[in-house]
């Protein structure tokens, strides 16, 4: 809980600051958009959180988002598949990607950074190759499927504001993830592997399978995220769809309290972390005196400050615990 308080505080400060600086921030339309973007990136962040929990990293997310996002309209319109077949194929493909990458990390003992960096390039390359680098769109059809990405759920009695549909997906995924991490044996094992792979091995925990599961969940959520993203925007270009999304996902996870050294993190934290990122991007657009071109600089700076503050708080808490321990 304490871990979330830090990032929640930062979130509130930023929200208050931006709403003072820009009158357009707290409008129904803007909030709706923010919620939609937060939900989409939150799903990616929750996914990469599993991998970071095991002290690994997944850089391939952008590539998987691109491949899933390009293939969805491609299979529907060019190949004439049904939405069910398409979605099943996309999800199955994402799972296989995760199993392969996880297998290379766990059994091949190759650093996750390398495996997934190659994955990032390979999957984007595949997407561009399959689609011949052509923009893919839904051609105005498949509105029922697209609802999961661009739908709006109206609240009875409220006219101006509706809940974006991806929020539902995020909600379900967050709940399932929390149950998995906190209530199941495999969730406990995943944290144990991140804390100390060696101690996990000596405790008879199937370390390799736990790792593979983490990469599989991550790729599955990345593929599902890619599906939602493309349903939301309607058409996508293979050369830039999903660019840098892995970094947004990792940043959200780190802001939300995940440690890159593994073993620690919270699902709620990631969601707030994703929200912080989206509010910042939004602020840069809304606040007139902030040049849009400074987007990356501002986001980078805020993440750095957040991580530094977190680190100092942690050390302070650890020191205090230690001195208290000596006192007893």
């Amino acid at each position: 809980m304490k871990k979330i308080l830090g990032i929640a505080g930062i979130f509130l400060v930023i929200v208050i600051a931006v709403s003072i600086l820009s009158p357009n921030f707290l409008t129904a339309y803007n909030i709706e958009n923010l919620l939609r973007r937060t939900a989409l990136f939150g799903i990616l962040g929750i996914g990469v959180g599993f991998v970071i929990l095991t002290a690994g990293i997944d850089l391939s997310i952008g590539g998987v988002v691109c491949l899933a996002g390009m293939l969805t309209p491609y299979l529907l319109t060019q190949m004439g598949w049904s939405p069910t077949e398409t979605v099943a194929t996309i999800l199955l493909m994402s799972v296989s990607i995760g199993v392969m990458q996880g297998g290379l990390v766990a059994y091949g003992r190759i650093q996750s950074f390398l495996v997934t960096l190659c994955g990032l390039l390979i999957f984007r390359g595949l997407a561009r190759g399959i689609t011949m680098d052509q923009t893919q769109g839904f051609q105005g059809k498949f509105t029922e499927l697209r609802w999961i990405g661009n739908g709006r759920i109206s609240i009875p009695g409220v006219e101006a504001f509706s809940v974006p549909a991806p929020v539902l997906s995020l909600f379900a995924i967050a709940i399932l993830s929390m149950i998995f991490l906190n209530c199941t044996v495999w969730g406990r094992w995943m944290k144990a592997v991140g804390r100390s792979p060696s101690a996990a091995r000596y405790s008879g925990i199937p370390v390799a399978r736990v790792q593979i599961l983490a990469y599989t969940i991550c790729s599955l959520l990345a593929g599902f995220g890619g599906l939602l993203f493309v349903c939301d925007v309607g058409s996508a270009q293979p050369s830039d769809f999903g660019n840098f999304y892995e970094l947004y996902a990792i940043a959200a996870a780190v802001l939300g309290g995940y440690r890159l050294s593994g073993g620690e993190g919270s699902v709620v934290g990631v969601i707030i972390g994703a929200a912080v990122m989206q509010v910042l991007r939004n602020a840069i657009v809304l606040i007139s005196w902030l040049p849009d071109t400074a987007e990356f600089a501002v986001i980078g700076l805020v993440i750095l400050i957040g991580v530094l503050a977190d680190e100092f708080l942690r050390r302070y808490a650890a020191n205090r615990a230690r001195t208290q321990a000596k006192g007893t």
């Binding site: 406990r188 094992w189 944290k191 144990a192 804390r195 100390s196 060696s198 101690a199 996990a200 091995r201 000596y202 405790s203 925990i205 073993g263 620690e264």
Partner: peptide, 16 residues
């Protein structure tokens, strides 16, 4: 190194 997850609690370690 091999026996404990030092940052975790007695409960987490002894019940793993």
């Amino acid at each position: 190194r091999d026996g404990l997850m030092l940052e975790d609690s007695v409960r987490i370690n002894s019940s793993v």
